[in-house]
Structure formats: C-alpha cells, structure tokens
C-alpha cells in the first residue's frame, strides 16, 4: 500500500512495493496517458513528473514513490493548455502520437528547470525519449517554441 498524490488527488494504491510506478498509474489508478514502451528506462514513453522532476515511471517502484507527488500528462494542465502542449499543437508534432505524452512531460520538466535552454540542452534532455516515427525535428522545434512562450 502506498500513498501517492497523482495530479493533485491523493491515491491509496494497493499494490506490492516492488511494482513499478508505471503499472500503478496505469493499472491501479487507471490513468492511461502514461505509456509503456520498454519497461527498463530506455525509451521515455512512461515519463512523469515525480516531485516536479521528469522521471521514467517504469524505473521507480511503488515503495519509492510512497508519499511523493506525481504529475502525469493528464494533470500537466487542467485544460491541456500548458505552453508545451500548445507548442506541440501549433507545430502539428505527432505522427502516431504514442511517445508524445512522455516527450511533452520531458520537455515541460526541462523548461520548468531551465526556461531558456540552449539547443544542446534541448537535445540532451530530449535524448531520453525515443520517437520511432521520427518526429525529432518538430519536437526540438516545439520545445524551442514553447521556451519562447513560457
């Protein structure tokens, strides 16, 4: 059993301590915006904010997340109007879209820490996230775009 605040709502999650946070979010809290892509910290599809910092939720256990605050893509902005989300829409970034929740959470965390990142800082941060469809050019442009609007 773990107490986790997800998107400002407190959840009592009834699961084993070694369960990755990803599966607790998806299977127990029922929030499906956070995606499973690799399960081992290699793709970033599962990226959420843990106490405000971009974190691959497949690598954090329920035990480790106990008492912490999690923001998922559903909670990034109540109306879906975070600057990063808006930039993603203005640039029509996604193809299949599956990686994009993780990409957006990664970008939002980067800009929260570093509102005016250099190109190299954008590339370094976004390298944690694979996009198999190959939207990188637009992803990088959208992060820049959001950064100027933050």
């Amino acid at each position: 059993m773990a107490k986790i605040t997800i998107n400002s709502v407190e959840h009592d999650i009834d699961g084993p301590a070694d369960m990755p946070l990803l599966w607790a979010i998806r299977d127990i809290a029922g929030l499906t915006g956070t995606k499973f892509g690799c399960g081992v910290g290699l793709c970033g599809a599962c990226t959420v904010h843990l106490d405000g910092v971009a974190t691959q939720s497949c690598l954090v256990t329920l035990g480790e997340a106990d008492g912490k605050t999690v923001t998922t893509i559903e909670g990034l902005s109540p109306e879906g109007e975070h600057a990063v989300q808006r930039a993603w829409r203005e640039l029509n970034v996604p193809q299949c879209g599956f990686c994009q929740a993780g990409q957006i959470m990664q970008a939002a965390s980067l800009l929260a820490e570093n509102p005016k990142p250099s190109d190299q800082e954008i590339l370094d941060a976004m390298s944690a996230n694979i996009c198999r469809c190959g939207c990188y050019q637009r992803i990088v442009a959208a992060v820049r775009h959001a950064s100027t609007g933050i």
Binding site: D27, G80, P94, G97, F98
Partner: peptide, 26 residues
C-alpha cells in the same frame, strides 16, 4: 491539424492498451 492532436497532447488518445473493461485481466 491531425484529428487526434488534442487528445494526443493531453493523454486522452486511446491506443491498444488503453481500453478498460469491467472484470478484465492482463
């Protein structure tokens, strides 16, 4: 803009693993 753009950016888009049914197992 692509049809599912808003849902993709808010996490509401439904992919294969996102459909839930009562009593379902994995």
């Amino acid at each position: 803009q692509i049809t599912d753009l808003r849902d993709i950016t808010t996490g509401a888009a439904v992919y294969g693993a996102d459909v839930m049914l009562d009593g379902m197992q994995v």
